[in-house]
Amino acid sequence: MPTPRIGLIIGSLRAGSFNRQLAGAVQALAGDRFVFDEIGIADLPLYDQDDDADFPAAGLRFKQQVQACDALLFVTPEYNRSIPGVLKNAIDIGSRPGGSNSFGGKRVGVIGTSPGAHGTVSAQQHLRNVLAAVDVAVLPQPEIAIQYREGQIDADGAITDERLRRRLQSFLDRFEAWLGG
């Protein structure tokens, strides 16, 4: 079986975001189990149904990148107990215009980190609801909603917190098995 191609969608635009660090650490931990392709969302225009007849080039690029992947991994922060607006906008673009849902039938993993006491629990629940609406199957367990703490991931992207490493390894093991089944 060929190595699964995983589209990596990071829900934060900030260059030094904690979730970008987490995404890098997960990629390193996964080794050669997956091929990761980051699918950028920063250049996507706000979704406007008036543009459906002449869909924006950035939107078409995003849709094609999603379609080219075997599965997706969303890595998202939590903003005001939900997902960032840019992430919701990307999902809206990927599922439009009607009849051209790029997400339909995809398998997806969801992880995230945020400084709040509950990490990204609320954001992940909201994201799971949105993804269900666009015909996505989300890996049910383990849920990885990490409370960000300085030093869990070092400047080189290595996971220094052993408990976090075990949780992420468990997630990758489950994700790999789920994709193969």
Rank of each mutant, 00 (worst) to 15 (best):
F171H: 03
V75T: 05
A117V: 15
R174I: 01
K88R: 13
G151V: 06
D52C: 12
A158R: 09
S95K: 06
F36N: 00
R149K: 15
Q124G: 02
C69N: 12
F34H: 04
Q152C: 05
P142R: 00
I91W: 07
D92N: 10
G119I: 08
L168M: 08
R149H: 12
I93R: 09
L168N: 02
I9L: 08
V26P: 09
V35Q: 12
G157S: 06
L168R: 10
A58F: 06
P4S: 02
L172I: 11
G105Y: 13
R107N: 06
S82L: 04
Q67S: 13
Y79D: 06
Q64V: 10
D173C: 07
D154N: 15
L29M: 00
I159T: 08
S102C: 10
T120I: 10
C69Y: 01
L8N: 01
S17R: 04
V136A: 11
G98H: 14
G98L: 14
P2G: 06
R107P: 01
T113G: 07
I10A: 02
I10H: 04
A123K: 06
I10V: 15
F55N: 02
K88T: 02
V86M: 03
D92L: 12
D135E: 15
Q124C: 09
L179D: 13
A155F: 02
P45H: 05
R20W: 09
S12E: 12
